[in-house]
Amino acid sequence: MSPSVDEQILKDKIARLDRQLCAARVKLAEKASANVSSYSPTPSTHDPSPPPNVALPNHSLLLLSDSALPLGSFAFSSGLESYLAHHPTAKGNPSCLDNFCSFLALILTSLATTTLPYLIVAHKAPENLQDLDAELDACTLCPVARRASVAQGKALLTLWERALKDDVAVSPAVKALGQFSRAIRVPRSRGDEDVELSGHFAPIWAAATSAMGINLHESAYTFLFNHAKAVVSAAVRASVMGPYKAQGLLASAWLRGEIESAMEANWGRSVEEAGQGVMMLDMWVGRHELLYSRIFNS
């Protein structure tokens, strides 16, 4: 073998190894860059610290918008059951969901014209809680609607006293709720007929949310949305729709829009100007008493 041939063979070998080394380096680089962009299941030591408290969800709001809040709201259909009984064809026909949506829109309109003004004033000035409760009672002429409002209001008051009030800072709303709880337990004396408390839902809701630091807009929106949830839940139990459709409806931009426009249209209304916006609801809710069989209390 000539030394020149040996030299050539060695040169070729070095060149081949060089290429392999280069290819391996490229592969390594590719692998490294892919790792950077992909999700890494183990937390890196460079993660930023948790966001400050202001960016966390409103704890009290989550609590009060929970369906599991023991207010008994799901015992009331707000006239849906009676509405369905007055429109026997509304159930199970193809336009059923449309019918339900228009009913739900009527409920929200009515709630916003009759009750929202009381919520707004009670949130702004909780010291008037007792007067607002008495005035709202004079405006609630339908016994079925009154039953529903008072049952949920009293339940919230009990919940406030027994569970919610402990870690809340003192405020006019806290004081008003305390006074209200004491006053409602005092038996009425005959000579004192101008002091009478019922415990309607909207003013107590307003005072409780105010006490827990929930702002007025959120309080009003959640009140209306909770109501919509209760009616939609009633619709599921009354076989108007299935659970996925129900959640779809609650998630929809349409429902948001309805709640927001109901709030907007009635935001400046004083309690003196509050009134029934949907007269048929008085009819349906009032005639709930006449249903042959009932699964709901309203």
Binding site: E273, A274, Q276, G277
Partner: peptide
């Protein structure tokens, strides 16, 4: 003399689609 409101029966019909609230009545 004292006064106390016994009942207030109020109706407000304004805004969009008033007819749609009447259920044909």
């Amino acid at each position: 003399e004292k006064r106390r409101m016994l009942v207030r029966d109020a109706v407000i019909l304004e805004g969009k689609d008033i007819r749609g609230r009447m259920d044909g009545k």
